[in-house]
Design a protein around this nucleic acid. Structure first.
Length: 401
RNA sequence: CGGGGUGUGGCGCAGUUGGUAGCGCGCGUGGUUUGGGACCACGAGGCCGGAGGUUCGAGCCCUCUCACCCCGACCA
């Protein structure tokens, strides 16, 4: 992508009422544009980061047997009446008979009912990555709490509590992997079930001051509890708890038979008798992850994307009007693209300072500079975003890799 | 949803007792620059969030309304 033509553009200033570090940096660097409170457009840079995160999530969900599906955003009110969640205040009601989906148990359960007749049809798991709508009384903190946000929701269906528990554990491990691959250390935190279940749920929290949740983490075993549970000592090892703030990037629930009761989701067991299906649900806030990564990975100059989720791998800069420089930079750009390297090419006619400042702001992991100086030294300069070291390398050496 | 605050070119702001809307950044054109947000010249762009009202006259005063931000309550 050539920066001069990109819809993503950097800005020296940001609206005075921008409310958080993630909103400020992501807006200034051209990843997102705010449309209304808690409602954002994703510009090319932002969309690319989302795609990277989605890719990681897909791989991990597929690895635990999740089948990807896509359910509608517009959902029948009738379904919500069956579970009694039709009066939840956060639901948008675009028409008399529909609700914008703020979760999808009410859709997936009837969907599963159509498929499941016998214990032979179980277990299975299905997930989607889709926009959720929740009419937050107070949207805030940039992408951390929106009224519309991208979420991955996985649902699992089982014949026994043991099987559900086993899958729940696999999902847990899979979640740790997802967050680790996104460059984040996450903590497992026990919490209440909210509108989803009466059972205890587990949150995945990333420690950051921008986070909205107050949690207590055990200094020994790193297990955590949401403060809403009023725990004073670690229940597992008796260790001291440290209170801190976290951003809840994931949440998993043992739903029991709450939804299979509401929709009569049964299966015939080996004796031919009808039994209720047991369910689990597992969410990841995809757009919240973007914000959380931005909150964790930044410095005074801008964003610092972990390689796995960076919008591009290389930020290529050409300096000056020298024709040889321009030609060489173009050549490198072409070669990199031929090798399917994701590269952002800053070929604008502006000062060096501006280009460097923008590169730091956007935060792509590797910066390559081509200028008359580097050509004199026989190549191009490379520098990592998270390091001050620069070195000159021959263009063709890099291109071979 | 309660309490508080803010709305003036794309962004940041100024606008005196009510009297023809300004500045900086950004943007366009021309030129000089080019290794950490350069400079000169010329230029485009706003009926001041919206609706009523007071007044000869409203960005400014009054009423209502909307949007956004902050503190709570609530929450992936």
């Amino acid at each position: 992508m050539k920066l001069s033509q990109s819809l993503s553009q950097t800005s020296k200033t940001v609206a005075h009422d921008t409310d958080s570090i993630n909103a400020k940096l992501l807006t200034q660097a051209g990843f997102v544009k705010k449309e209304a409170a808690g409602v954002y457009s994703y510009l090319p840079f932002g969309r690319r980061v989302l795609a990277k995160i989605e890719g990681i999530i897909r791989e991990e969900m597929n690895a635990i047997g999740g089948q990807e599906i896509l359910m509608p955003a517009l959902t029948p009110l009738e379904n919500w009446k069956k579970t009694g969640r039709d009066n939840v205040e956060i639901a948008f009601k675009p028409t008399e008979k529909t609700v914008l989906g703020w979760s999808h148990e009410e859709i997936i359960t009837p969907l599963a009912k159509q498929r499941v007749k016998s214990y032979r049809d179980l277990p299975f798991a299905a997930y989607q990555i889709q926009t959720k709508f929740r009419n937050e009384p107070r949207a805030k903190s940039g992408l951390l709490r929106g009224r519309e946000f991208l979420m991955k929701d996985l649902y699992s269906f089982h014949t026994t509590q043991e099987d559900l528990a086993e899958y729940y554990e696999r999902a847990k491990q899979s979640y740790f992997k997802v967050f680790e691959r996104c460059g984040l250390k996450s903590f497992l935190v026990a919490a209440g079930g909210g509108d989803f279940t009466e059972n205890i749920s587990h949150e995945f929290q990333v420690l950051t001051e921008a986070g909205e949740d107050r949690i207590k983490i055990c200094e020994k075993c790193e297990l955590g509890w949401n403060v809403e549970l009023n725990i004073s000592k670690c229940e597992k090892c008796g260790g001291e708890l440290r209170e801190t703030k976290g951003s809840e990037v994931g949440n998993i629930f043992d739903l029991g038979t709450k939804y299979s009761d509401a929709f009569d989701l049964n299966f015939a067991n080996k004796e031919g008798k009808q039994q209720k299906v047991l369910m689990g649900c597992y969410g990841i806030g995809v757009s919240r992850l973007v914000a959380t990564i931005a909150e964790v990975w930044n410095d005074e100059k801008g964003l610092i994307w972990p390689e796995s989720v960076a919008p591009f791998q290389i930020h290529l800069i050409s300096l000056g009007k020298d024709e040889d420089v321009k030609k060489e930079a173009e050549r490198i750009y072409k070669k990199l693209r031929e090798r399917n390297v994701e590269v952002l090419f800053d070929e604008r006619n502006c000062g060096a300072g501006e280009k460097f400042a923008d590169a730091d702001l956007i935060g792509i992991p590797l910066r390559i500079v081509v200028s008359s100086k580097t050509l004199e030294k026989g190549g191009m300069e490379i520098k990592k975003r998270n390091s001050e070291k620069v070195k000159i390398v021959k263009a063709d050496e890099i291109l071979k890799k």
